[in-house]
Simulated scan of single mutants.
Amino acid sequence: REQTLNQLLTEMDGFENNNGVMILAATNRPESLDPALLRPGRFDRRVPVELPDLKGREEILKVHARKVRMGNDVNFHTIARMAAGASGAELANIVNEAALRAVRNNRRVVTEEDMEESIEVVIAGYQRKNAILSTQEKLVVSYHETGHALVAALQSHSAPVQKITIIPRTSGALGYTMQVEEDQKNLLTKEELLAKIATFTGGRAAEEVEFGSITTGASNDIEQATKLARSMITRFGMTDEFDMVAMETATNQYLGGDTQLTCSSETQKAIDTKVVEIVRQQHELAKKLLTENKRKLDEISQFLYEHETITGDEFMEILNRPSA
């Protein structure tokens, strides 16, 4: 590594006047670069390439959409909102998937439905047409996904539900609930994070409320809720016990963002206890909300069981409909 670095530095500085020569370089490991490379006079300007925001996603989609025939019903703003957190490569993949779906269905143009389905393919994988769930499993998954959606809808700090489905996917998911923020959000409040944790626990809570037993279907929800609760404590300073003290530092920002603990084993034990407390409180809240709205839980779950997919509008219509 030193030989390579020295050779590069020599080529950059050299012994001759290299006016008009510009050197460009790219890396996804900026923290591992030698400071000698980054000092003024060598690489003077750094241009971080972050994930695109809402406007950026919309423009990127339009660029890739030029290659395919788009129907008049395609709303790029809506698709960009649904694809929150997607990179440029993933957005290109979404357009390609939509084009393939249109071809498979013998259509000459890509529709809004094709684009929405392709987002689901990128997020959760293809539909597993050959996956056969037993009647009981299908019912459990219906209640599980309705639990997520209902807990989200009954909290004021949650993003609106866009779609609920119980069609198995190649990623292993037996169903999922898609929520879409109405506006681009860069900052989240403590209340919004707690609402997310409660929503993650909503699936398991629905199983408990309806069947009195639990399944393995909540494994990913548990992982997400735990990760979020831990971040609230160790990185966001959102607890009274630890105040604004960083217990964790993020590394490899551009390679998935690993974290490293910077506290004693005693503090780690206290953090673990607090994580359990936060998740348990939100789990209890989810169960309380579903118990109080048991009739709606049954009504929506039954509708989802019969139709396998519910749009956000259908979900809200059933939720706001007066109970019989």
Rank of each mutant, 00 (worst) to 15 (best):
L5M: 08
V103R: 13
F303P: 00
A99S: 12
E120T: 00
L319H: 04
R128Y: 03
L187F: 14
F303D: 06
Q268E: 15
G212C: 08
N18R: 15
L24G: 07
I164D: 00
A86D: 01
M82A: 12
G147Q: 02
I79D: 13
A206W: 05
T111H: 03
S156Q: 13
E16Y: 11
R280E: 09
D114E: 00
K62N: 06
E292P: 01
Q184C: 03
A286E: 05
P168R: 05
M12W: 09
N293Q: 13
K288M: 11
L133D: 09
L5F: 11
Q302I: 00
E59Y: 10
I167K: 14
E58F: 10
G237L: 09
V140Y: 09
D221T: 04
E116R: 07
V180Q: 04
L139A: 13
A205P: 05
N320H: 14
E277N: 14
D240V: 08
I310T: 06
I318Q: 11
E90F: 11
E314M: 11
Y254R: 04
F242W: 09
T4F: 14
I214K: 15
H144V: 10
A86P: 00
K294T: 12
E112G: 02
A86K: 03
L38F: 13
H307P: 00
F15P: 00
P160F: 03
G217K: 09
T226A: 12
L133V: 05
S32G: 01
P35T: 07
L174S: 04
S219W: 09
V121K: 11
N106G: 01
T78V: 10
T311V: 06
E181P: 01
R128M: 11
E116W: 00
L51E: 03
D313L: 06
K288W: 06
I214F: 11
L51W: 02
D298Y: 14
K163Q: 01
N96F: 04
E97K: 08
E120Y: 03
A195L: 04
A98H: 01
R295I: 14
L255Y: 07
A159R: 08
N75A: 05
A99L: 01
E16A: 11
A206G: 06
Q260P: 00
L9N: 04
E277H: 14
L193Q: 10
V276Q: 15
K274L: 15
Q179W: 02
G71S: 12
E113S: 07
R39K: 11
F303H: 12
L100D: 06
K67V: 08
M316G: 00
Q7E: 04
E113K: 03
K274W: 07
